[in-house]
Design a protein around this nucleic acid. Structure first.
Lengths: 239, 239
DNA sequence: TATATACTCCCCAGAAATAGCGAGATCGGA
DNA sequence: TCCGATCTCGCTATTTCTGGGGAGTATATA
């Protein structure tokens, strides 16, 4: 690689970094590099706690949280449904509440143009990386077109760092399930009743019950639904 | 950008491509470029259907599916729990069944080294992009170190194309749950019984039942366990 | 060769979930 | 203003799940 040594450098540094704050440093460097108005990495962890790094004005961040704008923000809704980065223009701003929200955002110093990249991690983790600016549509289109790939990579690296240092990522290691237990959990997860599972596995329902119970015990679950949910979120079964 | 015009070109072509098969073309080009033994993009859709593009030997793919190896494959299990790309060496190959599986894979023409990138999309979509080769550890480490960023981007673009042309993206599949339905599903997923959920939400058990039933209906699930499993794997709830 | 783990089968009673009906209030968007 | 979606409450009967026991075989792993 020859060009864009700034981005290369920042990513290399991020790979080595050993604190969550390195995200903030990196964002400031990258904001300078790309010369945009705002750049934000933002996510909500499994406990509902929000983390944000970047350059949004503090009073806007406070207002956003206080008003629980996350519920109506079309950027959140739009990115949640999509995989590829989204230009804010292509989102649904039709609702009245949403237009008011946007007007207010601009008053707080948020640019009229935005480009957000959804990022997903294990266990339903979801984060957003956003660049934001004030300019004309054509200029913004050229900018996103030119920098899309680097922005995607940057988003990926930010999220890696965030996951690495996530406060409450208890390994939650559990005893592995036996093959039959995995079979049972998997079939239950795809909607089979006990009778159907037993028939599919060619065993008696009594035997099946032993598997479900031992799986439940291993997973520390109170009932079948709980056991299947745990097996799923621990990656022991895949549906 | 100056170097690596091949990757740049392939990504640009992918962006424009209008068929799913373009993934296969791109993989062949990229395999030549990176000079690796195998390169595969692979995913399982919400209906359990498997899609694979790439260079794994057909008889191995058939064997894999027939034996349902996806259940024991440590690459799947490992990537499912991680966000960042994974070197196969760092996975858990301790079980005997797994060692047998790996030995068999090598006999079918799979290299001893592998590097897999997990990719996640909306509704709990999960895919894998893997490069595979036969060589020494140091050589492989140097390769992955050097090409990691490009491989991440390639994985991202493959997945974008796959999602764009996903065969069965029925609109009803992504029907969102209402807040109360999410509450109900979430509490059930963490092991509460109906009575406990109703008490926690301060509603009658009858009302709760309506939520569970409508959630089940929206999710196309046959019972509560199934509904919770679907809500989890589609990312509608998080535990 | 022990000890552990997995796999298979059985009974019974009580607890919980499901299927089939129905009804009214509220709130935001077309 | 009306429509759709959401939220709330109710009944009865049937099916399914759960928890309490116990027991024998095979295959590993130590």
């Amino acid at each position: 690689m020859v060009a864009n040594t700034t981005v290369e450098t920042v990513l290399a540094e991020l790979e080595q970094a050993d604190t969550l704050e390195s995200i903030q440093d990196a964002i400031l460097t990258l904001k300078e590099h790309f010369q945009v108005q705002n750049m934000v990495y933002h996510w909500v962890d499994s406990a509902g706690e929000q983390y944000g790094y970047g350059t949004y004005p503090l009073d806007w961040a406070a207002r956003y949280q206080e008003q629980n704008y996350i519920r109506i923000d079309p950027v959140i809704a739009g990115c949640y449904k999509r995989f590829h980065p989204v230009d804010w223009k292509k989102l649904d701003w039709s609702s009245k509440a949403v237009r008011a929200f946007r007007t207010e955002a601009i008053e707080y110093g948020i640019g009229n143009q935005g480009y957000s990249i959804p990022i997903r991690g294990p266990n339903g983790q979801f984060a957003l990386f956003t660049v934001n600016h004030t300019c004309e549509d054509e200029e913004w289109e050229a900018f996103t077109e030119k920098n899309r790939r680097e922005l995607i990579l940057i988003a990926h690296y930010f999220n890696q760092k965030a996951l690495e240092f996530e406060p409450n990522r208890a390994p939650e290691e559990s005893q592995p399930l036996s093959p039959r237990e995995i079979d049972a959990m998997t079939l239950l997860a795809i909607g089979y009743s006990r009778a159907q599972v037993a028939e599919t596995l060619s065993i008696s329902e009594h035997t099946l019950r032993v598997y479900i119970e031992s799986a439940r015990f291993k997973l520390g679950a109170t009932n079948t639904t709980h056991a299947v949910a745990r097996a799923l979120s621990r990656g022991l079964i895949v549906v």
